[in-house]
Simulated scan of single mutants.
Amino acid sequence: MGKSKFAWAILDTRTGNRNQILGVLSQLKLRYRIIEIKYNFLAHLPNFFFQIFNNTIHIGSIKKLNKEPSPDIIISCGRRTATVALELKKIFNYKPFCVHLMYPQYTFLKNNFDLIFTPQHDRIKQKKNIKKFLGSPSNIKLIKNIEHSFIKPVFFLLVGGDHGNFKLSVREINKILKSIIKRLDNRGSLLITTSRRSSDHLIERINYLKSKYNIIKEVYHPKTSKKNNPYFRNLSIAKEIVVTGDSMSMVSDACETKKPVRIYYNKNFCSNKHINFCEKLIEKNYAFSFDTLGEKCNKIKVLNTSKKIAAHIYESYKNE
């Protein structure tokens, strides 16, 4: 887009939201300022409640908010940051170009966003200012030439967790791990990372299986571990990646690596929109079904959602 342009990026404490914005910014290649916000106890209320008052009543603190340098573009992500972006847009006479990632439910004045990007599997109609893309924007940058002591081949398992009425059970984890361990046949290493949505029962089971099977070399739980997350390292050194289909962000990250990605999903723990998402990725050769584990993949496509969104922002901004 050019370094003469300047962006304000509104970041909250949600890791997924932050990574989506940073992924798009990395592809836009412009100067930007991070506006850090933290929520208060009102943040669980719907967006229209905030808008009845002043758009920012749910904000506990906001850092680095001064008008200089003023933004050409404001980028936000997630429901709660939407009203903040709309409020910031109002304070400038020239009205900066306002981009929002993820459809902001229960929000008035959505048409004041110049662009809203939402996943293809969401039941939202595409309009002039609403664009749908396959996958979530990602900020994955693989690390080259990493030295490690893991026995090759390295398989990396990404485990999601519960969402709404859908629960990822111990039974499903047993099935996944049994299949991977059988495929490795005591040759190689299995690394596992869970998510903050993984239940305590799931974490306990995975820890037990690590003590039972030597081929499970490392387990990382973001809910409980105080060590640095080896997520990027593991994506970089893995020969194959297995991911549960309930986590759209993890699946999207894996599909940015140009490595064989096997998605384990079913209706027991995945909603219809998650299942549709996984099937579309498999149909378009960004990923493969779990039952192909270990098979050679002749054609692997890279999702590149951040790059595609950045290109669309550039074209839309240029034509304003």
Results as ranks from 00 to 15, higher is better:
Asn304Gln: 09
Val24Ala: 04
Lys95Leu: 08
His58Gly: 01
Lys178Asn: 12
Phe290Tyr: 13
Phe269Glu: 01
Tyr94Pro: 00
Ile192Ala: 04
Phe150Leu: 09
Ala287Lys: 11
Ile57Cys: 14
Ser189Trp: 11
Lys89Arg: 15
Val99Asp: 05
Asn139Ile: 01
Ile34Val: 15
Lys301Tyr: 12
Ile62Pro: 04
Glu256Met: 05
Gly294Pro: 06
Phe232Ser: 11
Tyr286Cys: 03
Thr224Trp: 05
Ile124Pro: 07
Thr224Leu: 12
Leu25Tyr: 07
Lys67Ala: 06
Val219Met: 09
His201Gly: 00
Leu191Asn: 03
Asp122Val: 06
His148Asn: 15
Val251Ile: 12
Asn276Glu: 13
Arg79Gln: 05
Gln27Tyr: 10
Thr257Gln: 02
Ile73Arg: 07
Gly135His: 09
Ser138Lys: 00
His148Trp: 03
Val159Ala: 03
Asn93Ser: 13
Gly245Asn: 06
Asn54Gly: 09
Ser289Leu: 01
Glu147Ile: 04
Asn272Met: 01
Val170Met: 03
Ile52Thr: 12
Phe50Arg: 14
Phe155Trp: 13
Asn17Ile: 08
Glu283His: 10
Lys38Arg: 14
Val219Trp: 11
Ser247Glu: 09
His221Leu: 02
Glu315Gly: 00
Phe155Asn: 08
Ile176Pro: 06
Phe150Thr: 07
Lys175Val: 01
Arg233Asp: 14
Leu134Gly: 05
His44Ser: 14
Lys307Ile: 04
Tyr286Pro: 01
Phe53Met: 14
Lys90Met: 03
Asn145Tyr: 08
Met248Tyr: 01
Phe166Met: 08
Leu101Thr: 07
Lys38Glu: 14
Gly23Val: 04
Ile62Phe: 05
Leu303Thr: 08
Val219Ser: 09
Gly23Leu: 03
Tyr208Ile: 13
Met102Ile: 15
Arg171Ala: 11
Ile181Trp: 10
Val159Trp: 02
Val170Leu: 05
His221Ala: 10
Tyr314Arg: 14
Gln126Tyr: 00
Ala310Met: 05
Asp162Tyr: 02
Lys210Ser: 07
Phe97Thr: 08
Thr107Asp: 01
Ile203Trp: 00
Lys227Glu: 14
His44Arg: 13
Gln105Lys: 14
Asn40Ser: 04
Ile275His: 06
Ser252Leu: 07
Lys132Gly: 00
Phe133Arg: 13
His201Gln: 13
Tyr106Met: 13
Ile275Phe: 03
Ala43Gln: 10
Arg183Glu: 15
Leu293Thr: 09
Gln120Phe: 08
Arg80Thr: 04
Arg123Met: 12
Phe97His: 10
Ile215Ala: 10
